[in-house]
Nucleic acid binder design. Structure first.
Lengths: 235, 235
DNA sequence: CATTAAAGATAGTAAAGCTATCGAATATAC
DNA sequence: GTATATTCGATAGCTTTACTATCTTTAATG
């Protein structure tokens, strides 16, 4: 028996719900591939339309502009991660165990592609690493925030902060540590792949998708050192 | 007696050296103000030219495009920080002391405006926080890196890693910790100001430039916890 | 069959991004 | 002091991006 988990998105993220039509779902699927291939700056609605065999105007019926589409993809990703976290830590009591599951999730380890139907999660993960900060590093971040466009990311951080507080109820920087954990994983991954001298992990051999494990070692060390706990070495 | 420290830049960062002419220096000074005011995406060479009372084409004689100008500003900033770090930690022996100076520097505390002549360091700092990751989060990062455009940032990280290793010669993640330190300060500052629920520090009251000190507390905790050292509380 | 919503098709505007050229001003060389 | 070269201002133009408008076709619904 198959379960399909539907991610319900904030209506301000789109003009027409892309999940409500075939064309809309193709926009999502193809935009992930396009953003991943050419990068956010070089992607245009025209190129996306051509690749989809449709017209620019059709895409504008779903999304105000390219930036909103990026925000949508990133929001979708964080809601997906948040759900996965809830699912995978359900019934666990040990916060250490929960944090381990979280790290594996953020590094997209042992991925079950069947749960995401038709869209390319690895490509989406690459987009999140390379482009997601552009979703909020704008001049209009306050306005976007007012419309709750970043709620999925904030919800996930709050959930992580909750786990941190289970482990150390008196830790005074739970939310900052949660957001730092996510961001650190992202740009260390990016640096490792593109500016490796900024890290202590070599670049990943081409074609290989799994991380050599040193990155997770660093993050684990950072996390548990901060929480004053012994390092939970599992790698 | 006044000393003017000249920052010598990599020649690939520009077409014509902006520091070699009056117009060039005005481009730098005004672009900092423009980027700070309207944000990188909404800034254009046309707007910059208008504000300077010159023409678009003149700016193109100095910089290939807007992105290269950003890379130049960011590179200048990191070279300046690196020099300041060398200067301020000169003759110090205690690595703890050096790291404290570094933190204050990265948070732009006790700034001596006289050392930067005519350009607005606080505005440049804001640009670095909000826009600097866009300098490398591109599809052409590898090509840019080949041209050594990010060398100042890498040099600074290497220097910080050196201090870390003075303190803990066996610490295995010195470079990653160095880059994480810088990046963490940046986006925690950004979050604090724009998405405060992602942090444990409230937003800074408008018009106030000094940080309430909680951010530095977090970063210090993260740093010294990682290095297994007692926390050096000075705030 | 009539209605209406979605999407295809075509067109067009405004701005951004960038290049080319020409002449005036100014500095430098001889 | 005249020749030469460099810099900058000024104008123009081209291509692409970003976005809007409108009209027709198609498909779904009652």
């Amino acid at each position: 028996m198959e379960y399909s988990v539907h991610v319900r998105m904030n209506e301000r993220l789109f003009l027409r719900d892309p999940d409500g039509s075939d064309l809309g779902r193709r926009i999502i699927r193809q935009s992930i591939l396009l953003f991943d291939e050419v990068g956010f700056e070089d992607a245009t609605f025209r190129k996306l339309a051509e690749r989809m065999g449709t017209k620019e105007a059709s895409i504008y019926r779903y999304f105000e502009n390219k930036h909103r589409l990026l925000v949508y993809l990133v929001a979708w990703y964080w809601q997906w991660i948040d759900f996965q976290l809830v699912f995978r830590t359900n019934n666990l009591t040990d916060p250490h165990e929960k944090l381990e599951r979280l790290l594996n999730l953020l590094l997209l380890k042992d991925l079950d592609q069947s749960m995401t139907d038709d869209l390319d999660l690895k490509a989406l993960h690459s987009i999140v690493i390379r482009e997601s900060s552009k979703a909020y590093l704008t001049h209009h971040v306050t306005e976007d925030n007012r419309q709750h466009l970043f709620k999925p990311y904030k919800d996930l951080c709050a959930r992580i902060a909750g786990i941190i507080l289970e482990l150390r109820p008196d830790y005074p920087y739970a939310r900052s540590l949660a957001s730092s954990l996510i961001e650190t994983i992202h740009y260390q991954t990016f640096f490792m792949q593109n500016l490796p001298s900024l890290t202590d992990f070599g670049p990943i051999p081409a074609g290989q998708h799994t991380h050599p494990g040193k990155l997770i070692g660093f993050v684990r060390h950072l996390l548990y050192a901060s929480l004053g706990a012994p390092i939970h070495n599992q790698d």
